[in-house]
Computed example of a mutant assay.
Amino acid sequence: MPVVVVTDSAASLPADVVTELGIEVVPLHVLVGDREIREGVDAIDIDYGSDSVSTSAASPGELREIYSAALDRSGGDGVVAVHLSRRLSATWEAGRQAVDDMGTDARVRIVDSLGAGMGTGMPALAAARLAHGGAVLDEVYERAVDAANNAQTFLLVNRTEQLRRGGRLSSAAAFFGSELVTKPLLHLVGGKLELREKVRTRSRAYARLVAAAVDAAGRRPAAVAVQHLGAPEAADAVAAQLREQVPDIADFYVAELGPTLGVHLGIGALGVVVLPGGCS
């Protein structure tokens, strides 16, 4: 049986891709008051600007159950679990604890994607495609690690207040002057969210986002994903520019961000993920 790839719901992988490649998706949690909602499983209707909304990682028990089922499905060939950056979520640490509890003799490998959204999804997708082709556990694990190390994630948000309040934004990204007159362009560095630059206008911010993604893609085939929260027109405009300016696109995705990321990024967030070399 093929090695099974597991990821979490924050990876934002398209449902048809998940089904085709047999990827197991662990639901993360959105907390609304005293309600706990499973992303991708339960219906979610939330106010992204509310202080009463927060998120939580999957528990070691939840992960252990899913890893065990995935290991059984693989016929013992193994599991590669690709999770949201450990700098942004406790899910990776919960996964490590789950594996320790299972005592599976290293047949379950945990990968820190160093990313979020499709920054997690692309390494999981690259690993799953290799597994689907019959690769062994070590090969699938190494492919996931390689993709995680090479994927680049860029984000535009309207305000950084929610990110800083939740501890997701590096203290090095402290702003000088008012955010009201700047548009922060952020990027993930070693799994940590940091300020890349401040731009004065929205149109200039979109241009800088596109330029950063084009530069990251280089001249090789690249997988590209555009993600947004409540900004479909902006996402479509950025996607159109990337299709024109990235010379060789191997995979292209446009999708809305899930609620566990949306709670921290806020309405209007727009991001681009680039994986040079693609997901194959």
Rank of each mutant, 00 (worst) to 15 (best):
P2F: 03
V3I: 08
V4F: 13
T7D: 03
S9L: 12
S12T: 14
L13I: 14
D16C: 10
D16K: 11
V18L: 06
E20Y: 06
E20G: 03
L21G: 13
G22S: 14
L28Y: 10
L28E: 06
L31E: 13
L31K: 13
R35Y: 05
E36Y: 04
I37Q: 12
R38Y: 09
E39Y: 12
V41Y: 10
D42T: 02
I46T: 04
S54M: 10
T55Y: 10
E62T: 01
E65L: 03
E65V: 06
S68D: 05
A70V: 13
G76Y: 09
G76K: 10
D77W: 05
G78F: 07
V80C: 04
V80N: 00
V80G: 00
A81L: 12
V82L: 09
L84H: 08
R87Q: 11
L88A: 07
L88R: 05
S89V: 03
A94R: 01
R96G: 01
A98P: 12
D100T: 07
D100Y: 02
D100V: 06
M102R: 04
T104H: 04
D105P: 07
A106G: 14
V108C: 10
V108D: 04
I110A: 03
G115Q: 09
G119P: 05
T120M: 09
G121S: 08
P123T: 01
A126I: 08
A127Y: 14
A127V: 13
A128R: 13
R129S: 08
L130S: 04
G133I: 07
V136C: 14
D138I: 08
E142P: 02
N150C: 08
N150I: 03
A151R: 07
Q152V: 10
L155F: 05
V157F: 05
R159G: 06
T160A: 10
L163G: 01
R164V: 02
R165E: 06
R165G: 06
L169T: 10
L169W: 11
S170Q: 11
A173S: 13
A173M: 04
A173G: 09
A174G: 07
A174Q: 03
F176P: 04
S178D: 13
L180H: 05
K183I: 02
K183L: 09
L185C: 02
L185G: 00
L185T: 00
L186Q: 03
L193V: 11
E194F: 01
E194L: 02
L195I: 00
R196H: 00
K198E: 03
V199T: 04
R200A: 03
R200E: 01
R204V: 01
A205D: 01
Y206N: 01
A211G: 12
A211Y: 02
A211F: 04
A213N: 07
A217E: 08
G218S: 07
G218K: 04
R219P: 00
P221Q: 09
A222H: 12
A223I: 13
V224S: 01
Q227G: 08
A231G: 11
A237P: 02
V238G: 01
Q241M: 13
L242E: 09
V246C: 05
V246G: 02
P247Q: 08
D248A: 11
D248M: 12
I249V: 14
A250E: 11
A255G: 15
T260R: 12
T260F: 15
G262M: 10
L265C: 09
L270Y: 15
G277D: 07
S280D: 15
S280K: 14
S280L: 15
